[in-house]
Amino acid sequence: MIKVLVVDDEPQILRALRINLAAHGYDVATAGSGAEALRRAAAAVPDLVVLDLGLPDMDGGEVIAGLRGWTGAPILVLSGRAASTDKIAALDAGADDYVTKPFDIGELLARVRAITRRGGDQPETPTVAIGDATVDLTTKTVHRHGDRIRLTPTEWQLLEILASNPGKLVSQRELLHRVWGPSYDRETNYLRQYMAQLRRKLEADPSRPAHLLTEPGMGYRFRP
């Protein structure tokens, strides 16, 4: 059964979507805020998220970013914001489809069927282990034996990209572009410096890393 998480602060919409989706064979969970959505997603790992942007505690774009830190599950935005700039921003942030309110339930169900047929990457666990350190990709925190390990924003960006792609070689160019920007192509010394800092904080033996690996001349790889 396909698991769907519906996130909206309007109880009537939550109820209507829960009833209609359940009637069509979906396993439905609901959340009324962004924080609740992230907690429920981490606990239940949904196959699809239907997300309102206007939430009481945070913007829906922040929820998209929080989810995209660890899962490729499709995200269908359901929002009263009809401006093209809002749609573009949501899609650029990682949403897969966008439906404006008021909406036709038949069309929405058709979009859900289409997006779940296409699917996304299989959801990954929101936490990964690096030795005895635990990386939580949802809350963007790292702990070892209950103590938080402080990372700089740049260290976190690098770690998040690698940990979200376990076993995959991520090229130097891709890391430079995603962390520092598209004008950075050859500043591989930045990568060496920050990867060394990450290893000192996370690896048991930074001189012989077991998880944050260098592929000489190509890029870096996270080995669980």
Rank of each mutant, 00 (worst) to 15 (best):
P182I: 08
A35I: 11
E203M: 12
R173I: 13
P56I: 07
A65Y: 00
D8R: 07
P209G: 09
Q197M: 12
A22V: 00
Q193L: 11
L51F: 11
G217M: 04
A37M: 11
T71W: 05
D97N: 11
A16M: 12
E155Y: 09
H177G: 05
V28F: 03
P74K: 05
H24F: 10
A22L: 06
E160G: 02
E62W: 03
V142Y: 02
H211A: 07
H143Y: 12
P216H: 04
G25V: 07
R199K: 13
T116P: 04
A204N: 12
D97R: 09
T116E: 06
E174G: 04
D27H: 13
D9I: 03
A163L: 11
E36L: 14
R200D: 03
L14E: 08
S183F: 02
H145F: 10
G66S: 09
E215L: 08
G34S: 13
L175S: 06
G60Q: 07
G131S: 12
K3Y: 01
L213K: 07
G94S: 08
P46G: 11
V170L: 13
T154C: 12
V63G: 04
S84Q: 10
G61N: 10
D92T: 10
W156S: 07
A90V: 06
G69A: 06
A16C: 09
V4W: 01
R118K: 15
L202A: 08
A23V: 02
K168E: 14
T100Q: 06
V77D: 05
E160I: 03
Q172L: 12
G94I: 04
T214D: 15
D52I: 00
A89R: 13
D59N: 08
V135S: 00
P216M: 03
A65G: 02
I130Q: 05
P123Q: 03
P74Q: 01
M58K: 12
T125R: 08
I75A: 03
L202Y: 07
D57V: 01
L108W: 14
L191M: 04
I161F: 03
Y26Q: 14
S207H: 07
G34Y: 11
T214S: 15
R111P: 05
L176K: 02
I2C: 02
Q157W: 02
R68F: 01
L17R: 00
W180A: 09
G94Y: 04
G25M: 06
I105G: 13
L175H: 06
Q172C: 09
E124H: 11
P74H: 00
K87H: 06
V179K: 01
G146M: 11
I19T: 15
E10V: 15
R221G: 03
P182T: 09
E36A: 15
G61V: 03
P74M: 05
D147T: 13
T139E: 15
A65L: 09
L21I: 06
H143S: 10
L212V: 09
V49T: 14
E203Q: 11
D136K: 09
V49Y: 05
S84F: 00
E215I: 12
T154F: 08
L198H: 01
S33L: 10
G106K: 10
D52Q: 05
K140L: 09
N20H: 02
V6F: 05
